[in-house]
Amino acid sequence: MSIEPENLLWMYTTMLTIRRFEEKVGELFAVGKVPGFVHLYIGEEAVATGVCAHLRKDDYITSTHRGHGHLIAKGGDLKLMMAELFGRRTGYCKGKGGSMHIADVDLGILGANGIVGGGPPIAAGAALAAKYRGAGQVAVCFLGDGASNQGTFHEGVNLASVWKLPAIFVVENNMYGISLSQTRSMRVQDIADRAAAYDIPGFVVDGNDVIAVYEAAGEAIRRARAGEGPTLIECKTYRYRGHFEGDPMIYRTREEEEMWKAKDPIPRFQAKLLEMGVLTEAKAKEINDRIVAQVEEAVRFAEASPWPALEELLEDVYTVAA
């Protein structure tokens, strides 16, 4: 598959934006500016990026507790995201959701999710709406290796299969669900093998190679748009940080972490782009500087934003008839 330089640069920029955003969130958490649970996506940027590179604004995604990367790749606004993480009223959810519930329904982002395995049935439903309307939209469900052991995964994928829905289930296999390694949570080596149970295609890809993700996702999304039904894609990757900020990480070795850091998706892709001549060192620096400035601007916006007013506590529980 030959990819337009413009797309390659979009992917590079998106991955780097996620990385810089997440690094900043980690720093802000450490100094107490971002409260609650924060699950960072650092190391897994190629997955959201390679998939969302194909998505239209009106396509749907369901995200997870580790959702910042999905949001950014789907076009989320850094300022509104940061304000939400700060709990301010200018945030995506008016400060009511926070990191685990950040969402932008106008961008087809049906929310991060605090419930592991909450996404697959919802993605099947969004895909049902897409099919029903016939506008060629798709629904992508991001989920973890751990989530793939939930009953909801089986139910959601089976329904999408039997109804031939335009859904793509993207398993971000980072080898752990909190402290439990994949080898202790399931017997299959490849979660993609589970596709056979639903008679749908299942692919394993190197989740730290954005091009590999892009190619597999491209085929799955083509199938979905063509009415050929769902696909399961398993992206093998690794989270560099703890499960949440503050995790002592007693369940994995520093050697394992170093091994995966050597496969960091961003320097890998950067080297490739430099070699291809799509990127120069100067341009890489320029992109990085721009992203750092955007992230700083998002932090300033969040810090300057007001807290929610106390009466907002009672608002938005129900939709009130117009």
Partner: peptide, 16 residues
């Protein structure tokens, strides 16, 4: 607590 889900923002949570 009032009849709402639990809000995230610390100011709303403390009011809840």
């Amino acid at each position: 607590a009032p009849f709402t889900p639990v809000p995230f923002s610390p100011v709303l949570e403390q009011a809840f």
